[in-house]
Amino acid sequence: MMSGKARQAAPMTLLRVAEVFAPERLAATDILMAGGRIVALGQGLAVPQGWPVQVVDARHLIAVPAFIDQHVHVTGGGGEGGCGTRCPPITTRDIVAMGIGTVVGVLGTDSISRSPADLLAAVRGLAADGLAAYMYTGAYRVPAPTLTGDIQRDLAWIPEVIGVGEIAISDHRSSQPRQDELERLVSDARVGAMLAGKRGICHFHLGDGKRGLEPLRRLLTETEIPADQVIPTHVNRRAELLEEAAEYALAFDASVDVTAFEDAGDGLSAFDAVSRLLARGVSPARITLSSDCNGSLPEFDADGAYVGMQVARNTTLIADWRRLVHARVLPLESALGLLAGNVARVLGLADKGRLAVGSDADITLLDKALQPQRTFVAGRCLYGAVDHHETAR
């Protein structure tokens, strides 16, 4: 992968593409980027002679908002079967090759050999490569492990921390938190986020347990916490849980996150899960997709003993998303929300998830089959072959 600095020799870049979906289809076919932002959209845009601009001729490709993956084990997950079962960290190339420009790092079961400090270092490393990279403080267990010793301080003082997670509920690997502990955790996240001007969501891992979404239903029913403060993920782990998630989304006008499992096993693929949620009447604006990549996909026997695992990848995320469009489950404009606009709204990333003047110049170029071919983050090309059509004035 060529470095971002090598790709972005000129301070301005003019993209000429076949179509622009912002996510709605625009009349524009040209995008001018400067200073990490989109500064103009239109047709036949021209830059005065002598201005330092790189012109990228990609008129065979479609421009869309760069994808956002809100659940990535950037340091690697796993460990449920001992130290030999720790998953490897993810690379920048693995991320941007899937058209993803923004990631949110998480810790999972293991917050002993992996720590929030380790996660922050990995996130900053990805940012140094040019990615937009954030993290959740905390992990499966409650009380949540933090960087400063306090959830509110983590959110208030550490720019990369945009929420708390992934907090495990209804899972034999969770710390079996009491309802009052969950309420205090979410409340701390809300107040800390308010002080920092962030959304401060709590990202909840759903396991196979019989309680399902009950702790979150109680949270929203018995407290003043708004529904957009809590995001349940892995809701397609099994068919019964997905049905419960549909009822939850409809009852509270809440968002739910579907995981693109590589091997769904007893659960449902992201394609099937989104299709079923839509059929139940859940608005596409209330559905997001994430990969869980470089996390573990452990298998346990009936007694809860570890028997093996696989390492999750993000390739299934894009494959299932493409299938939703190709099968006409959703038009491209709505499907983009699952990986871009909806996710940006949920996370409170106001300048991402949309192509508009003033927004971050995070752009993915897709071919006609909707396969990512180039990924720009803050106007820098981090993925994609440079061809002879590219010139600099």
Rank of each mutant, 00 (worst) to 15 (best):
A6Q: 07
R7L: 06
R7F: 06
A9H: 08
R16A: 13
V17P: 05
F21W: 12
P23I: 07
E24G: 11
R25S: 12
L26K: 11
T29Q: 14
G35H: 02
V47W: 07
V47L: 14
G50F: 15
W51P: 00
V55P: 03
I62Q: 07
V74S: 08
T75M: 07
G81N: 03
G81Q: 01
G81K: 00
G82E: 07
R86A: 09
P88M: 05
T92L: 04
D94A: 13
G101H: 02
G101W: 02
S111E: 02
R124E: 13
D129Q: 14
G130I: 03
L131F: 00
M135V: 03
A139V: 03
P143R: 13
A144T: 02
T146A: 06
L155D: 04
L155A: 06
A156V: 06
G165T: 01
I167N: 00
Q176G: 10
Q176D: 15
Q176Y: 11
Q179M: 10
Q179K: 04
L182G: 00
E183G: 01
R199C: 13
F204L: 08
R211N: 14
L216S: 10
R217Q: 02
R218P: 01
R218F: 08
T223L: 12
E224R: 12
P226Y: 11
A227W: 09
A227F: 03
N236E: 15
R237P: 11
R238T: 09
E243T: 15
F252S: 03
D253P: 01
E262D: 14
L268R: 13
L268H: 04
L268C: 05
F271C: 00
S275F: 11
S275V: 05
R276F: 08
L277I: 06
R280F: 11
A285C: 04
A285M: 08
T288K: 00
D292R: 00
F300W: 13
F300Q: 11
Y306R: 12
V307K: 12
G308W: 06
Q310E: 15
Q310C: 05
R313N: 13
L317F: 04
R328D: 14
S334P: 01
V343C: 02
V346H: 00
L347N: 10
D351T: 12
R354D: 03
A356M: 07
A356K: 10
S359Q: 11
L365Y: 08
A369P: 09
R374N: 01
V386S: 14
D387F: 05
H389Q: 15
H389K: 10
T391Y: 14
R393M: 12
